[in-house]
Design a protein around this nucleic acid. Structure first.
Length: 427
RNA sequence: GCGAGCGUAGCCAAGUGGUUAAGGCAGUGGUUUGUGGUACCGCCAUUCGUGGGUUCGAGUCCCAUCGUUCGCCCCA
């Protein structure tokens, strides 16, 4: 019988990897909570038109990467390829602006893009995203970027680069686009085929090309910085200044272009050298036009998202796994003893201990072997002899010292036991 | 979507057309039927991702397919 496998580009996250996921989720949620960001959970699928309108029909994400299907009533549904559009839809639908002030939101969850899988890129992947909606203050850009940097630092990740750019407002961008087309058109035949295509589709992308000849030509291309209007330029300069004030290292990268249409002004990307070609760990920027585009009133906003799989790849490279060890490994044999052990184990758990109960009923020697492998701090031993007089033995695995208590006494001295376990943990 | 590499047990693998598919780790049973980490012994792939083909003979060659990795595209 053929084995059914997980779908291409999807992965099971197995118990061994869960500690990494929990670490990322815990640290991110703590740091965001301290800055008064609140979690929001939106549906995993939406009307297709939300993404077409929000992300932009011409983008790769919408053009060739969406999981789109018709439901039983022939409505076009799409599995979300990113989180911002859904959050903004919810913001408008539930009039979150009426709560006054800015909305500080974050989310985590699965996203779907139909792409060729490789290291750090899957068809179902997970993001943690942050959205700050309702202000265009340069400080808000920096608040979010600083939080992103904080999260990465708290995770202990090293050798990360922060790249920064401004793509201006709509007008700046169309001026710049025109300038680029004018610059590159005379060289058209010297460009790599992809870039020739980009000339009409997305000229900003030519700057990002990895082709040597194209790179050479792009060297002297006009820079976006020179096409920013007065306000755009001022915003960008303030963001840079504030980052510097916060001692957040960053590099201006005029070639940095975000792939989704809704970005305006500040764009940023945090990359690692320790991943393959999918090196971006966090990306984001300002999206002042999106709320309006989706039918709300003109509302500025800023956001970013982390690729959780990529964060976890980095954490794993740094080998920060830790096995969960039980406080007690419970060894028991004999009908009466096994029944008592089940009850005692539960009582100990209710007192806050982690207890792994050996259910095998096999020879004591075998159970001890497993106790050893579990790396428990102590072994609880309950055999037929102990069961008759309601006793229990506690054997400290490290010192090999064994003590005998009545079962009721064991529960009374839980503070002492806890203390001894903590001492063992120090070693 | 395009180009290239890879696919032998849970994991790491040897094997490059010739009888029964090395080895190691992990697992499991025992030496030790009430006391662990070491040691020793036993077990653990009727089959080499899957399907077809070439051949007297295929894990080994060919084709297809699936998966995976790397690069491009793109992105988190």
């Amino acid at each position: 019988m053929a084995i059914i496998q997980a779908i291409r580009g999807t992965k099971d996250i197995l118990p061994q990897e869960i500690p990494y996921w929990q670490q990322v989720e815990t640290i991110a949620s703590q740091i965001l909570a301290r800055a008064m960001y609140q979690e929001i959970r939106c549906p995993i699928f939406e009307q297709t038109s939300l993404f077409e309108r929000g992300i932009g029909e011409a983008t790769d994400v919408v053009g060739k990467e969406m999981y789109t299907f018709c439901d039983r009533k022939d409505r076009s549904i799409t599995l979300r390829p990113e989180g911002t559009a859904g959050v903004v839809r919810a913001y408008i639908e539930h009039s979150l602006y009426s709560l006054g002030g800015v909305q500080r939101l974050w989310y985590k969850g699965a996203m779907f893009r139909y792409e060729r899988p490789q290291e750090g890129r899957q068809r179902q992947f997970h993001q943690i995203g942050v959205e700050l909606i309702g202000t265009d203050a340069p400080r808000s850009d920096v608040e979010v970027i600083a939080l992103a940097v904080d999260i990465l630092q708290a995770l202990g990740l090293k050798s990360l680069r922060l790249d920064l750019n401004s793509v201006g407002n709509k007008e700046d961008r169309s001026n710049y686009r025109e300038a680029l087309v004018n610059y590159f058109t005379p060289y058209k035949l010297d460009l790599d085929p992809d870039s020739q295509d980009r000339l009409t589709r997305n000229p900003l992308r030519i700057l990002d090309s990895k082709d040597a000849k194209t790179k050479e030509i792009a060297k002297n291309a006009p820079s976006i910085i020179n096409y920013l209007g007065v306000n755009s330029r001022k915003h960008f300069e303030q963001v840079q200044q504030l980052l510097t004030d916060l001692k957040i290292e960053h590099k201006i990268n005029p070639c940095l272009v975000r792939g989704l249409d809704y970005y305006t002004h500040t764009a940023f990307e945090i990359q690692s050298d320790d991943l393959g070609s999918q090196s971006t760990v966090c990306g984001g920027g300002r999206y002042d036009g999106l709320v309006r585009e989706l039918g709300g009133t003109e509302t500025p906003a800023f956001g970013c998202a982390f690729g959780m799989e990529r964060l976890i790849l980095l954490l794993q490279q740094q080998g920060k796994a830790q096995k969960t060890k039980p406080d007690f490994y419970f060894v028991s044999k004999g009908e009466k003893a096994e029944a008592q052990a089940l009850i005692l184990a539960q009582k100990l758990r209710n007192l806050g201990f982690t207890v792994e109960l050996d259910l095998s009923g096999s020879a004591f020697g075998k159970q001890f072997k497993r106790a050893d492998r579990s790396e428990a701090y102590a072994c609880l031993i309950l055999g037929e002899e102990e069961a008759l007089i309601n006793n229990i033995n506690v054997k400290w695995m490290l010192s090999k010292k064994q003590e005998t208590f009545s079962q009721s006494k064991l529960l009374e001295i839980s503070d002492q036991l806890r203390q001894q376990i903590n001492e063992s943990k120090q070693n």
